[in-house]
Amino acid sequence: MRVATRDMQAGFHGLSKAVLIAGPTASGKSALALDLAQKTGGVVINADSMQVYRDLRIITARPTVEEEARVPHRLYGHVDAAVNFSAGAWIADAAKALEEARAQDKLPIFVGGSGLYFKALTRGLSAVPPIPPEVRENVRARLERDGVEALHAELARRDPVSAERLKPRDRTRIARALEVIEATGRALPDWHREGLPPLLPPGEFSALFLAPERDALYARIDARFDAMLASGAIEEVAALAARQLDPLLPAMKAHGVPVLIRHIRGEVTRAEAAEFGRTETRQYAKRQFTWFRHQLPEFEWVAPEAARGWLETRAGQP
């Protein structure tokens, strides 16, 4: 067993500088990454936009404390929910985690379901500078005062390309596009043309998309959401709601959070909240399939039962 593990580790370091494990929610990505890290002496690096928040371990299905203790885990729960964390902030943190893994001669294993994070990792990202807090607060205040339709109309005047691309009621993205104009004097498409290079260019990684059969995946999603409720998700969300943070913050929009806040306020029953949460998560999984198929075709789609064999093949195993 030790010989096989050494061979697997050597094979991966010889053939790939990093392994990327993507897939829809509840597909078994974290367990697969943990298993691979144990076999290769690797480090698991989070690529899920909601698992970065320390306030949300249960509702985002972050690895447990016990799992995190078994192998090195990076970029899990390291951001406060009050922070408007972005793909740009994540890629900066990911660069440090990647550098640390390489310095320690550990296989970097990026795992998650956030397509934009993986796209930034392998294709690069626009070089939009940080938005000053006062600019963000001003745009958000106008959003609450004037409504999303008014801000979309303003965006159509100032950045018609972005306005045409966005849905008229997409509060978060409309606000973001206006924040960029206010802070930099330039529209988002201008920044997108001047991108940062990828951390992992082609040839420096092996990438799989874990693709379970849909009905089986949806059954797992339903069971997992119910298990979250039984494990304290309502109490976790109640603690977050008590902070009275801006509802437009990413952490406040994590799947299950808004409906559980409504349940805590007495607006819906627990059963209604559970059904909505399960449905919302299934819909999100469907979007993940579509996004990766069209945006990141270099990811090889692998059934869960074949995933370990796929990884061993990439490690030079028979």
Rank of each mutant, 00 (worst) to 15 (best):
M228K: 11
E213C: 02
V257R: 12
R70I: 15
A242L: 03
A82T: 08
L143I: 07
I59Y: 02
V79Q: 11
V268L: 07
R54W: 00
L32K: 04
L107D: 10
L32C: 03
G266R: 05
Y284W: 14
D190K: 01
T122M: 02
G232L: 07
A251M: 11
D105W: 04
H152Y: 14
D190Q: 15
A47K: 03
V3C: 07
E99N: 13
H152V: 09
P297Y: 05
A153M: 08
T64Q: 04
G11M: 11
A37S: 10
K119N: 09
V180F: 07
E179P: 11
P318I: 08
M50G: 10
E272N: 00
V111D: 01
Q51P: 04
I221L: 04
E179T: 10
P297S: 09
P258H: 02
A92R: 13
P247L: 10
P160T: 12
E134L: 05
P212D: 01
E305S: 11
A156G: 12
V83P: 06
E275T: 13
L143C: 09
V71A: 03
T172K: 13
R74M: 13
D93G: 07
R287H: 14
R142S: 07
S49C: 06
A175S: 15
E67R: 11
L125Y: 03
Q295V: 14
R265V: 07
L217E: 01
S206L: 12
F289E: 09
G309V: 00
A95W: 03
S114K: 00
E194N: 14
P304Q: 09
G203C: 09
E204D: 15
G113N: 07
V161C: 01
T5W: 12
L248I: 09
G77D: 08
S49T: 13
L188Y: 11
L121A: 00
P201D: 03
A241F: 03
L125N: 10
P108A: 04
T122P: 04
A82C: 09
R282P: 05
R220G: 04
I174V: 15
E275I: 00
D222I: 11
A254L: 05
T313M: 10
L151I: 07
P297C: 06
R308F: 01
L188E: 14
A273H: 11
Q38H: 14
S126K: 10
T290C: 01
D80M: 06
P201T: 01
I181C: 07
R214G: 04
T172S: 12
K253T: 13
F292K: 08
P168T: 11
R270Y: 02
L229V: 12
A233P: 11
D105C: 06
V52A: 00
Y284Q: 12
L56T: 11
P198L: 04
R224K: 09
Q295R: 14
A238S: 13
A127Y: 06
E149M: 12
E275C: 01
V44W: 09
L34W: 03
F292R: 04
R220F: 00
E179Q: 15
D215Q: 14
L249V: 00
I174W: 09
K96G: 02
L75E: 06
A285D: 06
D226P: 02
D7E: 13
A233K: 02
A274I: 03
V19F: 05
P304R: 08
F110W: 08
F276Y: 15
R169I: 15
R282A: 13
L178Y: 08
A233H: 05
R270G: 10
A187Y: 02
R265C: 05
T313A: 11
A89I: 06
A127L: 07
